[in-house]
Simulated assay, not measured.
Amino acid sequence: MPRVQFEDIIKTYGRVTVLKNLDLEIDDGEFLVLLGPSGCGKTTLLNLLAGLLDVTAGRITIGERDVTDLDPKDRGLAMVFQSYALYPTKTVRGNLKFGLASQKIDGAEVDRRIAWAARMLQIEPLLDRKPAQLSGGQRQRVAIGRALVKKVGLFLFDEPLSNLDAKLRTEMRLEIKKLHDELKSTIVYVTHDQIEAMTMATKIAVMDGGVIQQFGTPDEIYSRPRNLFVAGFIGSPAMNLRAGKITNGGGTVTAALDGVTLDLGRYGFASQPADGQPIVVGLRPEHFGAPGQALADAAGTFSLPVQYTEKTGGDATGYLKFGDGLIAARIDPEQIGRFRQGDTVDVSFPQGKVHVFDAVSGARL
């Protein structure tokens, strides 16, 4: 199970810089997700690791080997593509076998590997079918199987679930996570879907503008986003972000937001903020107290009119008019039917869950 390292990676296309002096280390057996919006550089980084693109500057190592200039076939990895990339004229067995053709493996070993992968992915009854006879989920299992039979320690996944419907995505997430737990291999997985990242990864690298904005465990990134981009990108519904100002005097620190004062006396500032400093406060919808419930440790209470509500089975969200916009607050789905547009509700927010960012740099304070 190799350790992967990117050192000072730069990738340019003419005058456009896609990756900017990027450093990243992936430990043995890690399930790393490269997460970010379209155009952030995550797929480019994966393709550099695979050898499908050339590095403009920098160094890539897998284990003890410098693979920066090696051909893809010599890097000791396997890749699963978004488009499945199956050969339509070959059976499932033929597709699994094809990836081993260049490795000069004897026939008995090839058969053993195909049987092992088919059993692990539960595609044994499909071995004699062709891709046109398979569902989308079955095709993706075959694509994963073609990577598995190579018996490598490093697997790359390029948005492998984006062509599947919601139910199949959920099923395949569990299958890929199960494979990682059983194989103990290193996985580098690209997605723009934060749910995939949060449920599958042991580590996440959140990317934007060719730069890693934050690297850490899913819990670290959710609980302590490093900047405004990460705060707004992670979470569903998204974190409420509202501009305000710090008041720091008389031994108390508060934030003023559109007429609401938040007590920040227990907030863990890295350094004392200046009086009057412009900030952005982040409040996750799921951390609001129930409407009408007075929290003992409340940073503040919002008394706001309901604009509209949204119920999705076992979850519900109220969107409340606040200043010139809305804030989202999770509400008990059994209670959401009580609220109508225009009703005023009181919702409190706990001190320990407030996030504060500098309004100019976007950095966490």
Rank of each mutant, 00 (worst) to 15 (best):
G249R: 15
G300L: 10
A166Y: 09
L241K: 05
N95R: 12
T43V: 03
T312V: 15
R129P: 01
Q214T: 02
A243V: 06
I327P: 09
E175D: 00
G58V: 03
R15F: 10
A132H: 14
R169D: 04
E334I: 10
L127K: 10
G210N: 05
P273Y: 07
G268T: 13
Y222E: 07
L320Y: 05
F349N: 07
I10W: 14
G251I: 12
A108C: 02
R141G: 02
K42C: 14
G36H: 06
P125M: 06
L35E: 14
D343A: 09
S271F: 10
L264C: 06
T199Y: 09
D358K: 10
D54N: 14
R364G: 04
V80H: 04
I234P: 11
G318Q: 13
G259T: 04
V354F: 06
A205G: 11
H180T: 11
N240Q: 09
G342R: 00
G314Y: 00
L134M: 02
Q214A: 02
P285E: 07
L179E: 09
G282F: 05
F269C: 08
G14T: 09
A143N: 10
H180P: 00
T186W: 04
Q293I: 05
Q341C: 13
K178D: 13
R139K: 14
A363D: 13
M239T: 13
D343Y: 08
G249K: 14
L19D: 12
G251T: 09
Q140E: 07
V230M: 07
A147V: 07
D69G: 03
G153A: 10
P278L: 07
A298E: 04
L121K: 06
K11Q: 11
Y222T: 13
K97P: 00
T68S: 12
E334D: 15
D263G: 07
